[in-house]
Every structure is written in C-alpha cells, then in structure tokens.
Amino acid sequence: MNWTPGPEGYLFIAIAGFLATDIWRWLGVIIGNRLDESSEMLNWVRAVATALVAAVVSKLIVFPTGELAASPLWVRLLAVAVGALAFFLGRKTPAIGIGTAIATLALGLWWIGF
C-alpha cells in the first residue's frame, strides 16, 4: 500500500503514523506504572530519555533540514556556544540563553550574507 491524497491516505497515516508512534507511548505507560519513584531503574530511564532528546537536539543543530541546511556549521556551533555562555552567566535563565543564541545566529547569518 502506498500513500494517496485521497481517503486511503488517512488509513496510511493512521497505520504508519498513529500506530507506529502510539505503541511506544502505551509501552511507556506500562513500564512507568511499574517504576518506583525513587528507584535506581527510574534514574536509568531518566538518563536514557534525556540522552535520546539530546541526540535529537544535536542532530537538529549539526544536520538541520530546510533553509538552515545551507548555512555553515561554525555559525550554528558559535550560536550554541555563545548562547550557553549567556545562559550560565545569566543564572541559568532559559530566555537569556535562547535569546542570545538566536541573536548570535541571526548576526552570523547576516554577516556571511545568508
């Protein structure tokens, strides 16, 4: 079966999208229900969940899609580094880190004539 813009497209999305995604959510509930809140196992699950999200984040930074794919890597890494510096100097306030990183990126892209 292949996707079509017609009504069968919804069935394709329901199987390859909804089912493919929600089975993991349901398994997460089943596992989470058995975890004790102060257990070492939960500590490991937290570490795995955080490392997974971190890997998604670093892929977005290093291998972006869309317009940013055409930008040089050093501009993106500089934006993250300057943003991280501002975040720690600014007593770990998310808005300070995010604002500085985006401003650095915009300035860098403008500088290279993006």
Partner: peptide
Amino acid sequence: SSIRLMPMIAALIPE
C-alpha cells in the same frame, strides 16, 4: 523515531 517516547513517558508517569 518514536521509540524515544517510551522512556520519556516511563519517566513522567511516576511523577
């Protein structure tokens, strides 16, 4: 790509 949801939700449920 959705496997990551499993540990994320497993960590949230006890909270």
